[in-house]
Write a protein that binds this DNA or RNA. Structure first.
Lengths: 220, 220
DNA sequence: CGTACGTTTGATCTTTCTCAATAATGGTGG
DNA sequence: CCACCATTATTGAGAAAGATCAAACGTACG
């Protein structure tokens, strides 16, 4: 895909890749750094919908539609390659191999949205936060971004709250609880699982929805 | 799409169209009746993820993946046309027009998943239930299934609860409340909005995420 | 080295859940 | 058509998870 014409851009934390209401004109591929999708309610509450990690194509979701229905913002500093909408569209519809790959990517992200709905709708705060930590670990591991069972979670507790439908205060209490129970270790934004099978059980985490072919080695 | 080889089936309420873990072998198009997607947690709680109405193709979401990550079940009696996976795949990748249409359909459903996450994560029970009622009305209206501002919502209060992340008891209290406030009228499963603009405001409902080109006449 | 942002903690309040009982409804077989 | 049964809806009382409010504490960076 990076054989297409593209432009590399360096982005600061909080900068917008997509704004709700925009007409999508390009698709960014995250080369480094993290991004997040979110939406605001009429009352100004924010719901974070997904976290994107390096390697993710950030705007298949909006690309073929007339206007974007949510925002995408950088979580950390990073780089993206921006490819014009037309170039991607031509490629996707000209080449069945690539078309299939793009469609599958979009469907897998859709599966992740569904799992988040389950997480927020039907798990208590402890499972809910653990689930987010597990998903993130698992996806990072697939990109070889986990070392010694340790990874960086570049989110503030307020962002974690907006991703899980909780308040920052409650997120803090739950994280401390998980720590007290010996399920996780934390230092700033660094997270380490003491025992993968325990946290996985607390989280009710089943990676089927990620549709990864081979289980990542770190978390079998 | 119905020019492809297909088989019409009549389905009873509660019958499964897709089970989590299945390898998708066909794609069903709903001709009549309603269906719903759902997932169960390890503790047996159910989260309903989406409602499908006549005209929806029920399994673009799983079709290209190795195994289904959620269940699809009939809500009411109805008919589906089942098209073999291979036939659809060939068509989608051979014909760019159709490929584009299928991709857009999948992306719009994805947008609906996102809005449900916002609804469950960041709206209180009153807005949340109202939002579901508004979305349903709006989508039905687009299919000309609303008459005199009245439509059938073929869901039990338990199903409404599983769709909104609430309990059936609370759903009941909220519905009664909306009724007492004069926002909705109900008779069995029939719902009528006394004043569309009022319920829309309570629901914080903005149809942008449905990506319908023309607003449905009933609810402009 | 101060200032803004993020984290932590305590006290209190509210929404929603849980448990339990009763009432209404719809479908079925006789 | 009617009586019966299972499912669904409704209501009340009490409990609990998580929210809110408020303050203090850390820490990173300019």
């Amino acid at each position: 895909m990076l054989n297409l014409p593209h432009r590399i851009r360096r982005l600061e934390p909080q900068s917008y890749l997509v704004r709700e209401g925009d007409r999508p004109e390009r698709c960014a591929v995250l080369l480094s750094g993290y991004a997040f999708r979110h939406k605001l309610t009429g009352q100004g509450a924010r719901q974070i919908l997904a976290i994107n990690i390096p390697g993710d194509a950030v705007d298949f979701q909006n690309m073929l539609l007339e206007e974007s229905d949510h925002n995408v913002q950088m979580l950390s500093r990073g780089h993206v390659a921006e490819i014009p909408r037309d170039a991607i569209e031509d490629l996707v519809f000209a080449n069945a191999q690539i078309g299939r790959a793009v469609l599958i990517t979009a469907l897998v992200e859709s599966a992740v949205f569904r799992e988040w709905t389950v997480n927020i709708g039907r798990r208590d705060s402890r499972s809910r936060i653990s689930h987010l930590l597990c998903e993130f670990a698992y996806r990072l591991a697939a990109q070889k971004l986990v070392t010694d069972g340790t990874y960086e979670l570049p989110m503030t507790q307020e962002q974690l709250a907006d991703a899980t439908g909780l308040t920052p205060v409650h997120v803090n209490r739950v994280l401390k609880g998980l720590q007290r129970e010996g399920l996780i270790e934390r230092d700033r934004r660094i997270v380490r699982f003491s025992d993968w099978s325990k946290i996985r059980d607390v989280a009710d985490f089943n990676p089927r929805y990620l549709h990864t072919h081979e289980p990542s080695i770190a978390f079998a």
